[in-house]
């Protein structure tokens, strides 16, 4: 019995160490809900954690909502308190899969699609077909792309008074430079 267990543990260890993982802790995500001719409503987060399993294209990202910085301090405060509720929901996550990743030779400027689930403000939404621009160099894989979501998908209400200034259609763009972090 113990012997069997030993082999099982050994086997698990081997499969774990065989994974090719790419990782970043300082990825960038921007979100923008600006309306033309009004002050820009834009937050930038430069401390995004993202992990890509290069063997199967599995992808996960984690963003701390408090980490979004705005040009305007009051806007940042309102974003945290009135819209994103960052005290109750400090995290936003994305879990998904890059389609046909492992079989792709990853030539410069490869374009692939990312499917997954975005969780923000306690609500989850499946988002499929995010176009990714992928560039691979020796040790890094960069993923660049953008997608749109609606504030209402995440149960975020935009008050009538500001509905001309804050768009309910939100553009999220990201730029992640993942570095090879394979377990040895």
């Amino acid at each position: 019995m113990i012997k069997q267990l030993f082999y099982i543990v050994l086997f698990i260890n081997i499969t774990v160490s065989a994974q090719t993982k790419y990782l970043t802790k300082t990825g960038t995500i921007n979100f923008e809900a600006s309306m033309a001719s009004f002050e820009e409503v834009k937050g930038i987060n430069k401390s995004v954690t993202a992990i890509l399993n290069a063997d199967n294209g599995q992808f996960a990202a984690l963003v701390f909502v408090k980490g979004f910085r705005f040009k305007n301090a009051l806007m940042e405060e309102h974003f945290n308190e009135n819209y994103a509720d960052s005290d109750s929901y400090p995290k936003a996550t994305f879990k998904g899969n890059i389609i046909d990743f492992s079989s792709n030779p990853l030539n410069p400027n490869t374009k692939l699609l990312l499917n997954g689930t975005l969780t923000f403000h306690g609500k989850s939404k499946v988002i499929n077909g995010i176009a990714l621009k992928i560039n691979k160099s020796q040790n890094t894989i960069s993923l660049v792309g953008e997608f749109n979501v609606l504030a209402s998908d995440f149960d975020i209400k935009i008050p009538k008074v500001v509905k001309d200034k804050v768009s309910k259609n939100i553009t999220i763009s990201f730029d992640l430079n993942l570095i090879n972090n394979t377990n040895k």
């Binding site: 990782l23 802790k25 401390s47 954690t49 984690l62 408090k66 980490g67 400090p90």
Partner: peptide, 11 residues
């Protein structure tokens, strides 16, 4: 700003 449970790090 948060506890990263993917990497088990304090950020």
């Amino acid at each position: 700003i948060g506890y990263d449970d993917l990497l088990e790090e304090i950020k």
